[in-house]
Simulated scan of single mutants.
Amino acid sequence: MGKQTYYEVLGVQPDATTEEIKKQYRVLALKCHPDKNLDNTEKAAETFTLLQEAYSVLSDPKERAWYDRHKETFHTDTVDVVDHSIDESFLTSDCYTGFDDSPTGFYTVYRNLFDEILDVEEPHKASFAELAKSKNDDDDKYPRFGNSTTDVAEVKAFYDRWLAFSTAISFAHLNKYDIREAPNRRVVRLMEKENKKIRDEAKKNRNSLVQNHEKSKKHLVRLEVFNALSEDEDDENE
């Protein structure tokens, strides 16, 4: 397991009685209360909140029984994100043969990659837009990659938008807990907290991987070329 179990938080054994748990909680609550730790109130508040959370679960027989059945997975920090993954080989120059429009060239390889990303995102966009309640119909639209002859303005628009990429995938399929199994609303909140942590980590991983493509050296070269062309056009127009 990763983080502490609620028994470890309270410093009691898994077979501790309700009275032992209550007694230990009172001792730790007094010791860890923020008012007693003015030198580091932020840390004390965090510790005190965790103590309260642990006690609220272990002091209730039904919640404790549910917790005991699930604590092995409840405190596991690892998140296995398999679906919607992006091959990291695309971050290297080995994935294309030249800076051209040939079938295995830079522009074709990355055009296909970003088209594939959009194809994966597309089914999720409707629900994403609805949840975000976007006022701008273009908020969830991403420009196409283009090719070696794409207009300078379009190239810039592509990178400006994709560098702020945010996946529309909810990753709800990665939820560890089914909240319908919770014995009460308090446990529902605990389940939702853990599920949200997993979903947020998966979103962060996907966003970072997509954004890292735009930050890689090969794409910076493309931007430099187009910036140079743009400057030449500006000089000609003066």
Rank of each mutant, 00 (worst) to 15 (best):
F74T: 13
E121M: 06
R180H: 14
S166H: 13
L190P: 05
D60H: 00
M191G: 07
T18K: 12
A29I: 07
F171V: 00
K125P: 04
T49C: 10
E53I: 04
N147V: 03
T41W: 05
A29C: 08
I179V: 15
P34G: 04
K156S: 08
N37W: 00
E20R: 11
E236M: 14
E181Q: 09
E42K: 11
K71R: 15
D80V: 06
R189E: 10
V9Y: 02
K176G: 11
T41Y: 04
K31H: 05
I198T: 08
T18Y: 14
D119N: 10
Q24I: 04
E192H: 01
F114H: 02
Y25G: 09
E130Y: 10
K218F: 13
N207E: 13
T41N: 02
K203Y: 06
V27G: 07
H213S: 04
A157P: 01
Y67M: 02
Q211I: 11
E214K: 06
V79C: 03
K156Q: 11
R161G: 02
V221T: 07
S102C: 04
F158W: 01
A65L: 05
E233Q: 15
N227G: 11
H213F: 14
N227I: 01
K133A: 10
Y177H: 09
L50R: 13
T76Q: 09
Y142A: 03
V188H: 03
E214M: 12
Q13N: 15
D137N: 08
K217E: 11
A182W: 09
R111Q: 12
L209W: 08
A132R: 13
R64H: 01
P123Q: 01
I86D: 09
S56N: 11
P34S: 04
A45M: 14
G2C: 08
V57E: 02
K125L: 12
H124C: 06
D115P: 05
R144E: 10
F48E: 06
Y96D: 10
D87S: 13
W162K: 02
V81K: 09
V120R: 08
A132E: 14
L28E: 03
K197Q: 07
R222M: 05
A45D: 15
D83A: 15
L30Y: 01
K215Y: 10
T18V: 11
H213W: 06
V12S: 01
S56K: 08
A54R: 06
P183D: 05
S216C: 08
F90Y: 15
D137E: 11
Y159E: 02
L118H: 09
R180A: 14
D80P: 00
Y7G: 00
T104I: 01
D35K: 06
F106K: 02
Q211M: 08
E63C: 05
D101I: 03
E8H: 00
I117R: 07
H84T: 06
V152C: 12
S89F: 04
L229W: 09
Y107Q: 02
R180E: 15
V82G: 09
D15T: 14
Y55T: 01
T76H: 06
T18G: 15
Q13Y: 08
K193Q: 12
A157T: 04
D115S: 13
A182Y: 09
T78M: 00
E224M: 12
L209N: 11
Y159N: 01
D140P: 03
A153Y: 13
R186E: 02
C95V: 15
E224K: 12
E116A: 14
E130D: 12
V109Q: 02
